[in-house]
Design a protein around this nucleic acid. Sequence first.
DNA 1: ATTCATGCAAAAACTTTGCATGTAA
DNA 2: TTACATGCAAAGTTTTTGCATGAAT
Lengths: 145, 145
Amino acid sequence: MKTPQEVFADFLADRNLKTTPQRRLILDTLLKQNGHLSPEELYAKVKKRDKSIGQATVYRTLKLLNESGLIETLDFADGVTRYEPSYGEEHHDHLICERCGKNIEILDTVIENRQEQLAAEHGFALLRHKMYLYGLCDECRKKKQ
Amino acid sequence: MKTPQEVFADFLADRNLKTTPQRRLILDTLLKQNGHLSPEELYAKVKKRDKSIGQATVYRTLKLLNESGLIETLDFADGVTRYEPSYGEEHHDHLICERCGKNIEILDTVIENRQEQLAAEHGFALLRHKMYLYGLCDECRKKKQ
DNA sequence: ATTCATGCAAAAACTTTGCATGTAA
DNA sequence: TTACATGCAAAGTTTTTGCATGAAT
């Protein structure tokens, strides 16, 4: 299996785009963090390693990474766009505590299978999906109020 | 069962906020349209009925409607925030064609039940959820390219 | 009478774009 | 060498906020 770095290099080559130090750095930073970064947080982290990098490069690279299938966008319903690496990782969904923000990654074959089936019933070829479960975690429910 | 208008009025009263013609108009417009409006589209529609209404009032009212549970935000992964009335409607998820944008509302008890179960397994009390299935519809797959 | 809501315009937040320069292939 | 990428700053978008005026309770 190709590494994410290889996937990205191939993706860029296919489109006659170039593998640059900035693009590598941004991908590495995302992979190292392993998930849930907003563009701004990512920019801050990347900037620690390369003072001269520009905000625009981060946005441009996020777009490319998204198109290449290496990352996907998340919507935790708090108004912040986040990205998470998705290549090589098994797909998963998110279980989010609305009070404390705790975020648990979940995977369930019953649901995954049923999604395929539902899409097929409507004549759709399923490409991907997103599922978010919002609730209150144990601890938050124990706390008064 | 209370009407959405009553729910909103009660919600506002609870918080010592006021029921204004603008707020009523915005809610009515959303309900009449029955779904999937961006703030800008909503503003345009509302403006047809009340020339003098301001953009800011639409945003402020959308926030209140969201807090009151009457509407929810949708994420069709196209960068546009949309809202849809959710009160009184049976909950549903969305099946979206990535090529033509066709959007089918779906509901499935197998998935709904399993979601509850999954949340419980992780100690969560499930409050709500969102599920989006992205794929290609029949027609789009038949078209060449 | 109070307190909140509104419209407007300004500001803030977020993202994209144009351009001159730099660099990967 | 050529074509693409970068950083910067400017410009777009989208959403929020401050304020004087107006309206609901």
